[in-house]
Computed example of a mutant assay.
Amino acid sequence: MNFLPCEIIETSDSIDASVIWLHGLGASGHDFVPIIPELQLPEHFGIRFIFPHAPEIPVTINGGMVMPAWYDILAMDMERKIDTDQILASAQAVIDLVDAEIAAGIASERIILAGFSQGGAVVYQAALNYDKPLAGLLALSTYFATHKTLQPSTANQHIPIQLFHGTQDPMVPEAMAQQALHALQALGYKPEYQSYAMQHEVCMQEIKDISAWLQQRLA
């Protein structure tokens, strides 16, 4: 099987959990690697952080320019007209990585999916459709692109979901995160929501809160 190319960071010689973390449009798997030491996780936490690289494809809203993207965006309205087949393919590519971690000895209940912006839209689909229970879903500055078409898996109907968003985000307005929150609640999930006075980015307080959330999920 051909897996997505990834950057991999391990916090210990003894690994018993995995975090698969997707970057946003135009970025790469290198994007969030520098955050790992900033999380200041306890030394006994043995986590494998996996940062996949998106394929390079033409992106319609950027004049057809070829860049790293998990799917094409056709229009920048509140509903974000997207290439649905591409987002489903990207979600499957993430599931392939999850399955590989399970095959390597990591229990599904010790695997977290995280994503920023476009990457977050992909992990919503991947995690909530997956047929084995996961440890959690972390949605950063993103939106729930497939909430109308998602076929939820009962295996993850109680998955812990954390949304983090910037109140001044010009790329993904906070209203889109609120839409995701309400859509999740309508589907029976119990997501947590936290906002910060920031734009389309990650701030230091958010990093501290991500660390606390990861420690709760993987304690």
Results as ranks from 00 to 15, higher is better:
V123Y: 03
Y124G: 01
Q125F: 08
Q125K: 04
L128V: 09
Y130G: 13
Y130R: 11
Y130V: 15
K132D: 06
P133N: 12
L134I: 12
G136D: 13
L137D: 12
T142G: 10
Y143V: 14
Y143M: 14
F144D: 01
F144I: 02
A145K: 10
T146E: 13
H147A: 12
H147W: 06
L150D: 14
P152S: 12
S153K: 09
S153G: 08
S153H: 08
T154G: 02
T154Q: 09
T154I: 07
A155F: 08
A155S: 08
A155H: 00
A155Y: 04
A155Q: 05
N156F: 09
N156M: 07
N156P: 05
H158N: 13
H158V: 14
H158Q: 15
I161K: 03
Q162E: 12
L163C: 09
H165L: 05
G166E: 03
T167Q: 15
D169N: 08
P170S: 13
P170N: 14
P170A: 14
P170R: 13
V172Q: 04
P173H: 12
P173S: 11
E174N: 12
E174D: 14
A175S: 15
A175M: 14
A177F: 06
Q178W: 09
Q178A: 09
Q179T: 12
A180M: 02
A180N: 06
L181E: 09
L181M: 15
H182S: 13
A183W: 00
Q185M: 05
Q185E: 04
A186G: 00
L187W: 00
G188Y: 01
Y189G: 06
Y189A: 10
